[in-house]
Design a protein around this nucleic acid. Structure first.
Length: 496
DNA sequence: TGAAATGTTGGGGCG
DNA sequence: ACGCCCCAACATTTC
């Protein structure tokens, strides 16, 4: 035996040569946002190496990454539970460690006598530096980095001049033109175990899930790779045909894929979702348009990661610096009304309550509530972004900031400043029968369709019949939209 | 991945 | 019969 059994970090270097030479020394498989056993390039490399595999997840809630929001922590807990279960069923384990990552990996390498480290790369601000630091601190280990999170690796899609794309459509075309999807791979039936297992922390000890009060009882979805294939298949079978329309209809439960948190935590590879959609379109040509729409949404996810990779300041700073002079309003009461779904605009309130209760919000409604916060209330998009970050199970560093900058008009390919959503008209257009509002704002449920999105305009007799007293059962609109629109246009114009 | 204001057109009521 | 007006309906412009 070589020095692999020595668990003392101080002695690592002494045995470095032996470990490098020993192809039997285990490989540490570092799980991060790739919590799956199928379609996992780092895992495939580890398996192909023939070494024993030590799977690990490192939790660092403050020192490195932006701390996860509460809803995302809830999802992460479930996803890790599922991954640990799947590993246990394959003769393996999931080792849990607290960060910072570099220190935890050095310790783990010493404890296991590992000879290699494999992981799938991330591309958030600082990710490359942290990965380089890990490599620096483990000079004796073979380091294998793979790409697993996006259709095209962020940074790999460039214009003819070698510059990053700033507009979605040309980006999507260029990505499409060069796209090479990896072959699909199933989870292995067995992962070779190391001679002995290092200590692991306890998942429950991380406190990722709320105790008292438990606000997660209404959360939707079963985290983990286990159910993701069925969910995808069900969506493609039942939802894809209606997707081009239904993805804009918040009242249609089956209208979206609901894959966002699963992609966020890597429970499914995006190329598997894309390949499955293409396969359906192949069998049923009538669905090819719908499949393309779905593919476009996946491409948006890639575009966001691509933008954040090239413009890391996007996470907190306006992409268009002219907006640094914007006079955002400080409006604690308005903000509180927005967060709690008490603005008096039914579609806005329905969305904010769905978010709070389920950890998810329909995409169309995300745009509506974002426009309302930024344009009607003139509150800084970063305030809304932070709320989404905390409340969404799918909160993604790239998508969240890109989309908020889009809504605020501060992004490079953003909605023009004069595009102000009218929450009443948006509600009437996309929730015409009021099903979404009735579900999430039950105090309005008895109003007829004609008035469900404009309760303040309803004749008194109609409100009486619905036993609805505005200001008592449901708030009056906290702003007059027409006035708020004018105010927003003036504020935006002052920037020019 | 808008909405509102403004302009144009054409059918029909009416004197 | 004819011109005038009203006003949807649609198109264009503006924010």
């Amino acid at each position: 035996m070589s020095g692999v059994e020595v668990a003392c970090p101080g002695l690592c270097h002494k045995f470095a040569f032996q470990r490098m030479a020993d192809k039997r020394a285990p490989v540490i498989l570092w799980f991060r946002r790739d919590l799956r056993l199928s379609d996992n390039p780092a895992l495939q490399w580890a398996l192909a190496s023939g070494r024993a595999i030590v799977p690990v997840h490192i939790h660092d809630d403050a020192l490195e990454d932006r701390p996860l929001g509460a809803a995302s922590r809830w999802w992460l807990h479930g996803s890790l539970e599922s991954l640990a279960r799947d590993l246990s069923g394959r003769g393996s384990r999931l080792i849990l460690k607290s960060g910072p990552a570099a220190g935890a990996l050095v310790e783990l390498a010493a404890q296991t006598g590992a000879g290699a480290l494999a992981f799938n790369r991330l591309y958030d601000p600082g990710a490359a530096e942290r990965e380089a630091l890990v490599a620096d601190m483990l000079p004796d280990l073979e380091i294998e980095r793979r790409a697993a999170g996006w259709l095209a690796e962020p940074g790999s899609v460039l214009t003819g001049q070698g510059a990053p794309y700033r507009v979605f459509t040309p980006f999507a075309k260029a990505m499409q033109a060069t796209l090479r999807l990896p072959p699909l791979s199933e989870a292995p039936s067995n992962l070779p175990a190391p001679p002995y297992w290092p200590d692991s922390e306890l998942l429950d000890g991380w406190g990722l899930r709320p105790r008292s009060p438990d606000w997660s009882t209404g959360f939707i979805g079963e985290p983990g790779e286990a159910g993701v294939r069925e969910q995808l298949a069900a969506f493609l079978a039942d939802g894809l045909a209606a997707y081009p329309v239904a993805r804009d209809a918040p009242g249609d439960e089956a209208g979206t894929s609901r894959l966002s948190p699963r992609l966020r935590f890597g429970e499914i590879a995006p190329w598997r979702a894309l390949a499955a959609a293409r396969a359906v379109a192949e069998r049923r040509p009538g669905l090819s348009v719908a499949a393309s729409k779905f593919a476009a949404e996946l491409a948006w996810r890639d575009f966001a990661a691509h933008l954040l990779f090239h413009f890391p300041t996007m996470a907190g700073a306006n992409m268009r610096p002219a907006f640094d002079d914007m006079e955002w309003r400080d409006d604690p009461a308005g903000l509180a009304a927005w967060k709690t779904g008490m603005t008096g605009y039914p579609i806005v309130d329905a969305g904010m309550r769905q978010l709070w209760e389920t950890g998810w919000m329909h995409n169309r409604v995300r745009m509506i509530v974002a426009s309302f916060l930024v344009k009607d209330l003139l509150i800084d998009w970063r305030v809304g972004e932070a709320w989404f970050w905390d409340c969404l199970v799918d909160a993604d560093p790239a998508s969240n900031t890109m989309n908020w900058q889009w809504a605020a008009g501060t992004g490079v390919d953003a909605a023009p400043y004069f595009r102000v959503f009218n929450p009443t008209l948006q509600g009437e257009r996309f929730d015409a029968n009021g099903a979404y509002v009735r579900r999430w704002v039950p105090e309005l449920a008895a109003l007829p369709d004609r008035w469900i999105h404009r309760p303040a305009d309803a004749p008194p007799a109609v409100r009486d019949a619905a036993d609805l007293v505005l200001g008592r059962d449901y708030p009056l609109p906290i702003v007059d939209h027409a006035q708020a629109r004018t105010r927003a246009l003036e504020a935006w114009r002052r920037l020019k």
